[in-house]
């Protein structure tokens, strides 16, 4: 990807588990300078990391490891570098997942990922409104329901141990965590890069948080 504006420098982690085109272009449109990184060496000296992901938890952890990103993500979080996980990228921030028993996650947010236990159709595919908690940079300050409605594709959802790590919830027959965060680490279950205006606005708020730092944690 070509350098974007003069905004924060974002490393977009490429570990072969998702298409990066839309995420990268969305961030660039918002002024970020995006570096697609396939190795930790390509993700140094950046302002923040974006961890996208589509697919299975176990396969994703294996690929993250193969690309040398697991240690780098833990160090980055410890150093206070903002990390944004998207979809499976959010789930990887947790300790473990029912999808791949026995495979340890990144462990950056205490808790587990469990299959959606709902009488509705799974995977949950479609748009849902998010009920944001107070005090997160991810939440819109105003606007109508459409400004809090995002596109989801998932069968599993995160369950943080500490309720204080929940950033927003949504409903699919049953309530589930749509966004979580701890310190500089945050993630969203939905796809902001596929959520039209509302999604771009969310990425814009996160980038602003990265640029100013004062509003962290996410």
């Amino acid at each position: 990807m070509t350098p974007g504006g003069s905004g924060p420098i974002i490393a977009l982690l490429d570990y072969e588990m998702s298409n990066l085109r839309s995420v990268g272009k969305a961030l660039e449109r918002l002024g970020a300078r995006v570096r697609v990184a396939a190795r930790p060496a390509e993700a140094t000296g950046v302002d923040a990391l974006v961890l996208p992901g589509v697919g299975r938890f176990g396969a994703a952890m294996e690929r993250l490891q193969a690309h040398g990103f697991t240690g780098m993500l833990r160090e980055a979080a410890a150093d206070g570098t903002p990390v944004l996980g998207i979809c499976l990228g959010l789930q990887l921030l947790f300790d473990e997942s029912e999808e791949s028993p026995g495979v340890p996650g990144l462990g950056l947010i205490p808790g587990a990922v469990r299959r959606l236990r709902t009488d509705r159709k799974v995977p949950h595919i479609g748009w849902s409104e998010v009920d944001w908690r107070h005090g997160t940079v991810l939440a819109p300050e105003d606007g109508g329901p459409a400004d809090r409605t995002y596109y989801f594709v998932h069968s599993y959802a995160c369950e943080p141990v500490d309720d204080g790590d929940v950033r927003g919830t949504a409903t699919h027959g049953v309530g589930f965590v749509a966004a979580a965060g701890r310190g500089p680490v945050a993630g969203v279950q939905f796809h902001p890069e596929k959520s039209s205006r509302a999604g771009l606005a969310l990425l814009g708020r996160w980038l602003h948080g990265v640029a100013t730092r004062e509003v962290m944690p996410a």
Binding site: R21, A26, K194
Partner: peptide
Amino acid sequence: VERTAEEVFIP
């Protein structure tokens, strides 16, 4: 597909 993914932010 490439152009759409770069310019249109819905699925």
